[in-house]
Amino acid sequence: METALKLNNVSKTYYLAGKTLRVLDDVSFSVEAGSTTAIVGPSGSGKTTLLGLSAGLDRSTSGTIELNNIPLGDLNEDDRAAVRNRYIGFIFQNFQLMPTLTALENVMVPMELRGEKNVRTRGKELLDRVGLGDRLTHYPVQLSGGEQQRVSLARAFANQPRILFADEPTGNLDAETSGKITQLLFELNRQAGTTLILVTHNTELAASTQRIIRLAGGRIIADEKQ
């Protein structure tokens, strides 16, 4: 199988006020293309840091990370941004939509940044697929939390990413909305053949993936195939 992500002996250390804080400690694993993986663990276990390093949002202190067979350690900030724009989609707990843009405009932004054509048509199609075809001109403040997360799902898939990183995608949603968003996320992911890597406290969401990696104290304590 093709490998979408590979981490080898990755550590991340912060130096704060003369103290050393090791957030990740010698983490190694690889993720097969097209698979779904959940990263779980208590608060402070290093989950979000691991996600950020894997996506090239930050640099590891030691170890190597390959994303889509591209070694991230060799790249400068601009090159890492180009890799993210080309291969990666993101979904965040707090949606991170641009408040001054409509739902449609929010979905169009990543496609416009890539210089694609027919972005309005594709944006409408994506919002239709997430059930928001009638909310194209609404601004984030006019949408519920579940609707905002649907917009961010449509935006995440706009670039047809090879890998989708989701950080607590249901964290700000009630149980019912959470279930609907989870179903939609896996449906879109399956249709697109995307590799899904998500961080979550939601045990039901984690159980929906093919693999669960458990972190504690910055180390992997279990790696379970389901």
Rank of each mutant, 00 (worst) to 15 (best):
147 E>R: 00
154 A>I: 13
149 Q>I: 10
167 D>W: 10
151 V>L: 01
188 L>K: 07
185 L>Y: 05
181 I>V: 15
185 L>H: 02
188 L>P: 01
139 Y>T: 05
189 N>L: 01
162 R>K: 15
153 L>K: 09
158 A>M: 11
192 A>H: 08
143 L>E: 04
162 R>W: 01
145 G>V: 12
153 L>H: 05
181 I>H: 13
139 Y>G: 02
143 L>V: 02
191 Q>E: 15
196 L>E: 05
189 N>Y: 00
136 L>M: 13
139 Y>I: 03
141 V>P: 00
170 T>K: 09
186 F>E: 12
172 N>H: 05
161 P>E: 11
177 T>H: 11
163 I>W: 04
157 F>H: 07
173 L>G: 13
195 T>Q: 08
180 K>W: 07
157 F>L: 02
138 H>R: 14
176 E>V: 13
195 T>H: 08
153 L>T: 12
197 I>N: 09
138 H>A: 15
146 G>F: 08
187 E>N: 02
196 L>M: 08
176 E>N: 06
138 H>E: 04
191 Q>W: 00
147 E>V: 08
190 R>D: 12
171 G>W: 04
182 T>Y: 05
196 L>Q: 02
159 N>R: 10
157 F>M: 14
169 P>W: 06
195 T>P: 07
153 L>Y: 05
175 A>I: 11
157 F>S: 05
145 G>N: 08
187 E>A: 10
188 L>R: 03
139 Y>E: 01
189 N>C: 09
146 G>H: 07
143 L>D: 00
181 I>Q: 13
183 Q>I: 04
179 G>T: 14
182 T>N: 14
173 L>W: 01
172 N>K: 07
194 T>Q: 02
186 F>W: 14
170 T>F: 07
142 Q>R: 14
167 D>V: 00
194 T>Y: 02
153 L>E: 06
150 R>P: 11
188 L>D: 01
178 S>I: 07
189 N>E: 06
180 K>F: 10
196 L>F: 05
169 P>I: 03
163 I>R: 02
136 L>S: 10
181 I>L: 06
